[in-house]
Design a protein around this nucleic acid. Structure first.
Length: 389
DNA sequence: TCTCAAGGCCAC
DNA sequence: GTGGCCTTGAGA
């Protein structure tokens, strides 16, 4: 029977029960859809998986369990040896062991994804059977991050307030962050004026002789500069709204993970005409030559290229300030209070997105900008590995 | 328009 | 509390 005629007949049959008909039809359609794609078995209980939930392939019950456990897991206790097996359709599963298996297998609110799996990734998955799920999840994660908006389960908390209140919160957050960032770059405007003057009169970089004496002097100057930078970083994040709730350990980890990234944002406007005009003190300019002496040629080239790419986005000062705050909520893992950091990420991510939208940044801009933003952790790590003394 | 995942609802 | 099913919303 042609599909269309079949549908009309079905409609006739159910015309008095239109609502029920639509529900039934929806159910049937769902069943047809469900068999179109095989996600394999649930990574938690080995039951039939219904899709990627919180980053991994799981069944509906385990998805629901993880959702419910996000707030309840601190109450869970294991009455045995914390190694209970999690079997399908066994309703009285040990909650403690089930929750820990979810974490072990990689379930996380960080991996929340909306919308369908891109066809390219899906095709890749089919071609490679199901063995490379973690790689696929990683691709999904990267794609999602490019989309910038880190909306998590906290969105409900956020959305509970009215639209006007949300705008007010974002606006206040934006203003406060901007004010703190301005304090963080206090004095840097004189470097910018200096740079513009030098460039106008014809800029010739100083070619330092690489004697041991000069190298030691430059390194010492850089170390002193880093001490001041550390104080600026601390002052910035310590005063950001919400950050006062972080404990010392998490604060230190975040400082470490974003130490050089914030330096890049502080000197954002000093990358001009193929060189950097940041002053380490009154005399030493952190130009290409000085940076090569301190960082080595390879990292200098990589780092400067990254910074020039960043400056090419021509961000406004508020966008720079919010980006600087946002990276602190985004690139640190294994913190003691990840829930709080996710909450902060939600607010700062939204505030950044709010400002980018106000400035009418298009999709291409956002994608390119976030792609570049993602390079910060790697650059920061490279800089941390250098021995500066 | 279709597919997919998050989150809500509710019978059990 | 669990798990099946539904709605919603994002994105291809």
């Amino acid at each position: 029977m042609p599909h269309r005629i079949k549908e009309i007949r079905e409609r006739e049959l159910f015309r008095l029960y239109d609502h029920e008909f639509l529900q039934l039809k929806s159910r049937n359609d769902r069943k047809q859809c469900e068999i179109t794609y095989d996600f394999g078995n649930c990574k938690i209980c080995d039951d039939k998986s219904t899709g990627i939930h919180y980053g991994i392939s799981t069944c509906e019950p385990c998805k629901g369990f993880f959702k419910r456990s996000l707030l309840r897991h601190p109450e869970y206790k294991c009455n045995k040896s914390q190694s209970c097996s999690i079997l399908p359709r066994k309703t009285k599963k040990c909650k403690f062991c089930r929750w820990h298996k979810c974490l072990k297998e990689g379930m996380s609110v960080d991996k929340i994804r909306m919308g369908r799996i891109p066809n390219s990734i899906k095709k890749h998955k089919v071609n490679n059977s199901i063995q490379n799920l973690s790689e696929i999840n990683e691709n999904i994660k990267i794609l999602e991050f490019y989309k910038l908006i880190p909306f998590t389960f906290y969105r409900e908390k956020f959305l509970n307030s009215s639209k006007e209140n949300q705008t007010l919160v974002l606006s206040l957050l934006k203003d406060k962050t901007y004010q703190l960032f301005q304090e963080c770059i206090e004095g840097f405007d004189s470097y910018e004026t200096r740079a513009l003057n030098i460039l106008q009169s014809g800029y010739v970089p100083i070619d330092y002789e690489r004697s041991q004496e000069n190298i030691d002097f430059i390194r010492q100057t850089f170390l002193s500069f880093l001490k001041n930078h550390a104080m600026a970083v601390y002052k910035f994040i310590n005063n950001l709204p919400g950050f006062d709730r972080l404990d010392k350990h998490d604060m230190n980890v975040m400082m470490n993970d974003n130490f050089f990234s914030l330096l890049a944002y502080r000197s954002y406007k000093l990358f001009l005409e193929d060189d950097c005009f940041l002053m380490l003190d009154e005399k030493v300019q952190f130009d290409k030559n000085v940076a090569s002496i301190i960082l080595g040629d390879e990292i200098q080239i990589k780092g400067f290229s990254h910074c020039f790419k960043m400056t090419s986005f021509r961000l406004t000062e508020i966008e720079i300030a919010l980006s600087a705050a946002f990276i602190f909520t985004t690139f640190s893992q294994n913190l003691l209070n990840m829930d709080l950091v996710r909450e902060l990420k939600e607010y700062y991510g939204r505030a950044l997105y709010y400002v980018l939208t106000l400035n009418k940044r298009n999709k291409d801009f956002l994608e390119n900008y976030i792609r570049e933003l993602c390079k910060f952790p790697q650059m920061n790590k490279l800089c941390l590995e250098i021995n500066y003394s």
